[in-house]
Amino acid sequence: MTRKLTCKEILEQLSAYIDEELDPSICAEIEAHMEGCNPCVAFLNTLKKTVVLYKYSAEGDEVPREVHIDLHRFLREKCAQDEGE
């Protein structure tokens, strides 16, 4: 029988687990561990929430209007200069 994973070993694998990058056998081990370990469950849940918060944190971001205008003016000038060289 294989040795069971410790909390420390679980912690090291959690990002890969969230990103579904682990072998099914390791996922099964992690899930078995989680059934009896509330701190690891809470840690996993909060790590997932961290990822989700960042995933949506830039939604709806827009370039400020003056930045957009400056950018296009800058490019028209510089790129036209480039053509002329």
Binding site: P39, A42, F43, N45, T46, K49, V52, L53, Y56, E59
Partner: peptide, 14 residues
């Protein structure tokens, strides 16, 4: 430190 879950709905929090 102890680990506890977060009472937060990410989309609402944002």
């Amino acid at each position: 430190r102890g680990v506890s879950d977060w009472a937060v709905d990410p989309k609402e929090a944002l």
